[in-house]
């Protein structure tokens, strides 16, 4: 016999959350890694390698000079435009590929090609063709992340439960309700997964494009640090980049996913 626990009150909840937050193995990992890094750098004694303290200094400089949010904003605009374009086109392509054999065969090879080309090629080509401006990064981002979105959406369309569609035919459910109640709920997890991969690709290509053909943005900053041979500068910008990614992941993507998957019996935790 298992007796269900009485519901914990709010105070306990907050306390247990704080406990989980502060006395978490993560922080131990974090501290251990920082210490390892610190002593490794001291031990090998190469001028280029920065200690964590020096990187922190760079971080402080970046934040104090106030350029961070401007640069981030520039990158974000490019990513936002390119990614939404890729999402729209990718969903259309994916739905076409999943539902019609002709379109699947039509796009198949192009998608495989698109998946395997490195982001570098997209970035360089669009910089050469479109020059410095908004078009180059947007084109590169769209081209690079579209195939990932299309493939995922196609799998989603294919996984729509044929039995449920048959059931709808029996009960003469109209098309609008069919799409709202059956097609969309099946597709949304796939679209979420697609957005996740597509977004990561978009970021990476955006940064690359900025390295080669932009005068603002996080990628441009990295390039600048590379040119003045400052490893700590690059590490600092990389950390900020990673931080932004984590904020987007935990602040937007995971809550959204949880909301759309609330009807599922268990939430599998993968990565």
């Amino acid at each position: 016999m298992i007796i269900p626990n009485s519901k914990p009150n709010k105070k306990n909840l907050i306390r247990s959350f704080l406990q989980g937050f502060f006395f978490n193995r993560r922080w131990i990992t974090f501290v251990v890694l920082i210490l390892c890094w610190h002593f490794f750098v001291l031990a090998v004694d190469i001028d280029l390698l920065p200690t964590p303290g020096r990187v922190l200094e760079s971080l402080r400089e970046i934040m104090r000079s106030g350029i961070f949010f401007g640069q981030l904003g520039d990158s974000m605009v490019r990513i936002g435009l390119g990614f939404s374009l890729a999402l729209t086109l990718g969903i259309i392509t994916g739905v076409l590929m999943g539902s019609r054999d002709f379109w699947n065969k039509f796009f198949q090879d192009l998608i495989v090609l698109g998946l395997s080309l490195p982001g570098l090629v997209y970035a360089l080509l669009s910089v050469m063709i479109f020059g410095i401006g908004l078009t180059a990064p947007v084109a590169a981002i769209t081209a690079a992340s579209l195939p990932f979105i299309a493939v995922n959406v196609r799998e989603g369309v294919r996984s729509i439960d044929k039995d449920l569609l048959d059931m709808c035919r029996v009960y003469k459910i109209d098309r609008v309700r069919l799409i709202r109640q059956i097609v969309l709920p099946t597709l949304i997890p796939f679209i979420m997964a697609a957005s996740r991969i597509g977004f990561t690709v978009a970021w990476k290509v955006a940064v690359l494009t900025e390295v080669f053909g932009a005068s603002t943005g996080i990628g441009y900053q990295m390039r600048y640090q590379f040119q003045i041979f400052s490893v700590r500068g690059i590490v600092a910008w990389a950390l900020l980049f990673g931080l932004v990614m984590l904020v987007i992941e935990y602040g937007a993507l995971i809550p959204m996913e949880r909301y759309f998957n609330r009807w599922r019996p268990t939430i599998e935790k993968v990565v």
Binding site: T200, W203, K204, V207, L208, V211, G219, M222, I234, A238, F241, G242, M245, L246, E249, V271
Partner: peptide
Amino acid sequence: FGLALPGLV
């Protein structure tokens, strides 16, 4: 973190 950082870095 390793998965998220771009290869460029």
